[in-house]
Amino acid sequence: MNYSIETRHLNLWYGNFQALIDVSVNIKDRLITGLIGPSGCGKTTLLRTFNRINERYGNVTTKGEIKIFGKNIYDNDVSLPELRKSVGMVFQRPNPLPISVYENIVLGMKLHQQRSSLKKSGLDEVVEQSLREVFLWDDLKDHLKKKATSLQLEQQQKLCIARLLPLKPRVILMDEPCSALDVEGTRAVEDMMLSLRERYTIIIVTHNMAQARRVSDECIFMLLGEIIEHNDTDDLFLNPRNPKTADYIEGRYG
């Protein structure tokens, strides 16, 4: 089986507080993996270890192993910008930069390539292709100069995903990507995720159990920094193996 992310005995501390406890998990390529669990159980923390962005948040200690497509990302020869290129992340609040739609999308390429190697026509093409992949092209093709922060929230969130695509990521991490969106927006983003599914490894954190069932192929349930259960989504929801999982999906906590 083809695993895109494998962790072994991953432990993480914020100062003295242990936020991840002995997490060993295999995440499959080209599937959507849902990550559920009550508030504060470490979902965001786990996502952020996958592109090592955690290290930007103060006093963090990480122990254990994380392999992404077979490569241990804590090896010394791993370049963080390159890692983050391959493992992109989307947040709860859409965070487009206060620049134009166009500039938002080409930003990543501008950061990673010599200015001289970027041709206007090439960039235009990348922008169109990225916007098409997230179903935004028809809406925005005449508004590429518009400030990204003035778009609707749903469009902003899709743009934040589109912004990752020019970097040719292999993994896309989504941290509650729909929780700021209304029903329509959520639907649209979910449709988009399903269409991206064949090309990327997608991990989505969600508080919305119905959403986890709708979009994810496999599902992981976390509690207090530990992984309680990891299974096919249908199995996890219909025949939970662990009583704690059952309690959670039946709404008995958080």
Partner: peptide, 16 residues
């Protein structure tokens, strides 16, 4: 802060 995280997550260095 989200402006910064947005940049970091497309692989920007601190200076970029």
């Amino acid at each position: 802060m989200p402006f910064r995280t947005a940049c970091w997550n497309v692989g920007a260095t601190r200076w970029q």
